[in-house]
Design a protein around this nucleic acid. Structure first.
Length: 191
DNA sequence: TGCCCGATTAACT
DNA sequence: GTTAATCGGGCAA
């Protein structure tokens, strides 16, 4: 039986937490799957929403670790983050892709697609599949509707450059599960 | 108040 | 490969 992830898990640097979450299982109201792709954002990082200080939108990032930060992307999609590090450091991991395992029919209905690879492969797609909205902003990750199970068994984690940003593009803060078919985009092979 | 643009996606050519 | 959709945040005035 996999171990439940509790809030203390997030009381570390986002750069330690992010690779540890690869292979973990995320469920929202019993629907979800295995985390196969993440990106780290840090308060000293110009690409992070928290870089310019606290605002109404990013307030949760400046609160305690172990909570969900949900924001609207391009006025259209929702994106889900987990707040990390001790309170005030304003770091978070963006959940970018899941391998769907639980509640496939629900996810297909919400997404309007049949192909499993299109259900949760992308930050906006997985929020739609799991029913994550602004209503989840600020909720604790170790209480309903969230459930998080630690990775069970050995895996290999890939690292690479983050996607879709224009600042601090050189930081290798994207993490992925090696060999997964459910990544939002392939990782560049090692040179 | 007005303007620009984004941690995206899907539907194009 | 390119581009429209769509809107709130952040910053200048």
């Amino acid at each position: 039986m996999p171990q439940l992830i509790r809030r203390a898990f997030f009381r570390r640097s986002v750069l330690e937490v992010a690779p540890d979450l690869i292979g973990a299982t995320l469920l929202v109201d019993g629907v979800g799957g295995r985390i196969v792709e993440l990106e780290a954002y840090h308060h000293t990082d110009p690409a992070a929403h928290s870089f310019r200080g606290p605002t109404t939108r990013n307030a949760v990032m400046f609160g305690p670790p172990g909570y969900a930060y949900v924001y609207r992307s391009y006025g259209i999609h929702w994106c889900l983050n987990f707040v990390c590090e001790p309170k005030g450091s304003a770091s978070a991991v963006l959940i970018r892709a899941l391998e769907p395992t639980t509640g496939l029919a629900t996810m297909r209905r919400r997404r309007g697609v049949k192909d499993e690879r299109l259900l949760c492969s992308g930050p906006g797609r997985l929020c739609e599949a799991l029913g994550v909205t602004h209503a989840h902003n600020g909720l604790a990750l170790d209480a309903p509707p969230f459930r998080l199970y630690a990775r069970d068994g050995a895996i290999e984690v890939l690292t690479g450059l983050r996607i879709g940003i224009t600042k601090a593009v050189e930081l290798p803060w994207r993490y992925g599960l090696k060999g997964s078919r459910f990544l939002s985009k392939p990782f560049k092979p090692k040179a």
